[in-house]
């Protein structure tokens, strides 16, 4: 047995292929669910599943640290923020997509072009996927190193973050702080010059939530 049983189990080739396809099926289903679900809050909850399956991919790629960070940051924190924002804005007011004109008299080609025009985004994204796939695929396209993955990944990442990449790391922390303060400033409801206000964003949010309850429900 190697240093860590889970990684050893997951790096068996058969196991990896099967796990990859099971997880990718899950990811695709849930991703379509996120984009397609009519209730926006439910699609926000499905997002947890997408992030969770991507954390599963990270585990398959033997990046444990990133998988845990993915679950902690994306699947919990960001999803919670998204869901709470969805509850604060009123998603029921979102208009349904306009009904497609049902013109049976058009010839097939015209119908086809009309649907193309309506679904321009779909075509663009399909085209981008095909382009990316053509650019990606093929044997010997990437210099795949047949090396096993580094054993003490956390140590490698930590050392690199504190030595080689210390300045970007500091900048990213400054960015996070600035984003936090900026988000609080933007989301605050009162005028800025009020002297005895307190930065109680969560309380404000819960109060606004209670006011909005009558609308959402």
């Amino acid at each position: 047995m190697s240093y860590d049983n889970l990684t050893a189990l997951l790096s068996l080739p058969v196991m990896e292929t099967w796990m990859f396809y099971v997880l990718s099926a899950l990811a695709i289903c849930l991703g379509v669910g996120v984009l397609h679900d009519r209730v926006v809050i439910r699609s926000g909850f499905i997002l947890i599943g997408v992030f969770g399956t991507i954390a599963g991919f990270f585990l398959l790629l033997s990046a444990q640290f990133l998988a845990m960070a993915q679950i902690m940051i994306y699947a919990v924190a960001i999803t919670l923020v998204v869901v709470i924002a969805l509850m604060l804005t009123n998603p029921r007011l979102e208009a349904e997509r306009t009904a497609e004109p049902d013109d049976d008299n058009m010839p097939a080609m015209a119908k086809f072009f009309a649907s193309c025009k309506r679904n321009m985004t779909l075509w663009i994204s399909a085209f981008s996927f095909i382009t990316l796939y053509v650019a990606i695929s093929g044997e010997n396209r990437w210099p795949v190193a047949g090396l096993p993955v580094a054993k003490d990944q956390v140590k490698v990442i930590g050392e690199a973050l504190t030595t080689t990449y210390s300045i970007p790391f500091e900048f990213s922390s400054v960015l996070l702080l600035a984003a936090l303060m900026g988000a609080i400033m933007i989301a605050k409801n009162e005028p800025l010059h009020d002297p005895d206000e307190e930065p109680k964003k969560a309380i404000e949010d819960s109060k606004t939530q209670e006011n909005n309850l009558a609308l959402t429900r």
Binding site: L66, A69, I73, I78, V81, L147, Y165, S172, S173
Partner: peptide
């Protein structure tokens, strides 16, 4: 697989994504 630069970059993407979401 030795220097794990991709994972390092992914950490930065993670922080930027958190800031962007907020």
């Amino acid at each position: 697989p030795i220097q794990l630069k991709g994972q390092l970059f992914a950490i930065f993407v993670l922080t930027v994504a958190a800031a962007e979401a907020a």
